[in-house]
Design a protein around this nucleic acid. Structure first.
Lengths: 219, 219
DNA sequence: AGTTCCATGTCGCGG
DNA sequence: CCGCGACGTGGAACT
């Protein structure tokens, strides 16, 4: 990784045009060729950048970064305060844990969370426009499509609506009703769901995890 | 801005849990207190980070970053290869040009782009679920709701559909038809729009800007 | 503060 | 390679 701290101006021409007046900034060039220009503030996002793949041309006090899409990043340097180049090697990468899939797994194990007699048909039930998180049958024998989100927003309701549209064309399943489940559902999403005849359910992740541990303890 | 390149492990506990095994990485601490851990590759996004506001506690070879929401970032250092701390001063900030609002402004000035006799009623016409970009009346006196995006994708069609749903409940406006305008419209979005009876229009930003300059020159 | 929508979103997966 | 959905989305604008 190459790091240069210097006075510079930056011009980006691509999906939009942008310009940075002369100031002191950090320019980072990673091993994969991606370039990022950081100010000393403003979260982790750089002011300007160019992702790999690209080509960096160094020309006197000017760097030109081009990518195959025709985007261009031009950095013109003034005084260079500091520069270094360090070997860092491969990164083993990030291990994550505890997102939507986990919630889905927990709820798939406990369909009765959504009503007495609710039974799972299958997870990730395929439709032409993508898989429904859970497809179930309720106590009355009605098919139920369940969409699960960590945070329930209007998009999720739209997504479920589209699934329902398609599922209801399948005469073997129709009529299909919808349940929208999330840890927290925004008022606007609740409103739209109600308007569409979709039930909303707020689920408690810790409770689910807790009862999961309970179940585990029995074995 | 403080920069340290060192062997380290990183643990994040917050909205999810994540762990980085020991490896050489760059740790950046900006003036506003935000912390970012970068590998030598993978675009501009850090492997792990903590945005301001937060508190950094240095304890021997371990840094603990806490934020008011209870999220936690723990960095444990091994060998330190390099460290520096540089003054960079305020950044004048990025000047952008050519985004959605600009497109909206240009099209609001030229409603006839969407058909002969098209007249603007107002920009950002309010509905209970958000403002419609342009509300117009066409040559036949029919109300037209126009949604403008830089890139036309399925979400935009959904958004316009929702607006139309609400606008058509207003007996003073109904029937309202929809136009979906963007510099570029994805095939899937066109398909969905057609299915919903929404017209799609691809507009040329440079043409619009050009004719804008023309208009300017007349005065 | 809460909510909505934009973004040079980025990223990963599956067709 | 495109389409599509998730993201610790982040960030701005507006109520």
């Amino acid at each position: 990784m190459r790091i240069r701290v210097a006075e510079c101006t930056v011009r980006y021409e691509g999906r939009l045009n942008a310009f940075l007046p002369m100031a002191t900034r950090l320019v980072m060039v990673k091993a994969d060729g991606c370039v990022a220009v950081h100010a000393d503030g403003g979260a982790y996002k750089p002011l300007n950048w160019m992702n790999a793949p690209n080509t960096l041309t160094e020309d006197d006090d000017m760097w030109t970064v081009l990518n195959p899409k025709g985007e261009k990043l031009i950095i013109e340097f003034g005084e260079i305060h500091f520069e270094t180049d360090l070997e860092m090697g491969e990164d083993p990468g990030l291990q994550k844990d505890g997102v939507e899939l986990e919630l889905q797994r927990l709820l798939a194990e406990r369909p009765e969370t959504f009503g007495v007699g609710m039974a799972l048909i299958r997870r990730e039930y395929p439709t032409p426009i993508g898989p429904v998180d859970l497809l179930c049958r309720d106590g009355d024998g009605t098919t139920v499509a369940i969409e699960i989100k960590r945070r329930g927003e209007i998009d999720g309701v739209e997504q479920l609506s589209r699934y329902l549209e398609f599922l209801n064309r399948d005469t073997r399943l129709a009529p299909v009703r919808g349940i929208f489940a999330a840890q927290e559902i925004k008022p606007q999403a609740k409103l739209l769901a109600a308007d569409r005849g979709i039930t909303t359910v707020e689920v408690d992740y810790d409770d689910l995890r807790g009862s999961d541990s309970e179940v585990m303890k029995l074995f």
